[in-house]
Design a binder for these strands. Structure first.
Ligand SMILES: [Mn+2]
Ligand SMILES: [Mn+2]
Ligand SMILES: [Zn+2]
Ligand SMILES: [Zn+2]
Lengths: 141, 141
DNA sequence: GTCTAAGTGAAAATCAGTTTCAATAAGACA
DNA sequence: TGTCTTATTGAAACTGATTTTCACTTAGAC
């Protein structure tokens, strides 16, 4: 998500574009997958040293509301975030041994959503995370 | 999961079978899907009035480690738990309007696990939650 | 029955995330 | 460009979920 597009979305939502928000947006894209608030704060500080962690939390909330970011839960007690990709989505493969995160663009959930709709429930979103052992950890262990 | 089976699994893991753990196990099966620690505590108290919330947390941790229970994350800031069904699993449909939870036994994730394995990552578990609007909330709103 | 380590409860601590409030600064408008 | 309104910010205090500490209890092995 480039800055202009993001700025437009924020303004469309009645929100202001601040140096802090630009810093968080850049941190988010630089960090890639599933970064937590502390990590995002640390990275955002490089561009805007005075930014507070509170502002990072508030910004992530605003970004999520405007569809610029989305939350990811990996079960480690903190909420993680990543920039949303327009019209696409991916899922995470979490290695239970080393903690590294890989991703898949493949998603086999849509057909299931159809079946569920036939039962009356309209699915608008889903979360899928896969856990196991990455190639590295599977061989040398 | 019946008591004998559960007791066996606990003992196999070097753990003891206590009145508190029996109460939590029963609470878990009575409550069904995705109950949080407070709810489980409230229910367990009916059978064992002196049980503390701390013990409930510790028991849920033990049960999870022994495969008797599993955690569920619905994104509301608390960890939820449910008894594991042997050899089966299901997924949750969370209504974004009324909060009610429905379930599906259908799971389209396994073929994806195969594809992923071909890339070297061995999937041992997955979490899938679906969000949207239930029949009730979809019609009358 | 005795013994020992696992388990328990209450209180205190931790940790992620939220709220409060006074100061700051987008950006609409003159 | 300057003025004004109101969203945003940072620091400190707070909240709510979960964990840790520690003295006491008890399951279950012998
Ligand atoms: Mn990702
Ligand atoms: Mn369930
Ligand atoms: Zn790994
Ligand atoms: Zn509903």
């Amino acid at each position: 998500m480039d800055l202009d597009r993001a700025a437009g979305r924020l303004r469309a939502g009645g929100r202001r574009v601040t140096a802090q928000r630009r810093a968080v947006l850049r941190a988010l894209t630089e960090l890639g997958c599933a970064a937590d608030a502390e990590e995002i704060h640390g990275r955002a500080r490089r561009m805007h040293p005075r930014i507070g962690l509170v502002t990072v939390y508030r910004t992530l909330e605003a970004f999520t509301a405007e569809g610029l970011a989305q939350s990811v839960f990996l079960g480690d007690g903190r909420t993680r975030y990543e920039a949303t990709e327009q019209g696409r989505h991916h899922h995470h493969l979490v290695c239970l041994h080393c903690g590294r995160i890989a991703t898949t663009d493949e998603c086999t959930v849509q057909p299931l959503e159809g079946t569920i709709l036939r039962r009356g429930f309209e699915v608008t979103a889903h979360r899928l995370e896969l856990f196991g052992y990455c190639a590295r950890c599977r061989t040398r262990r």
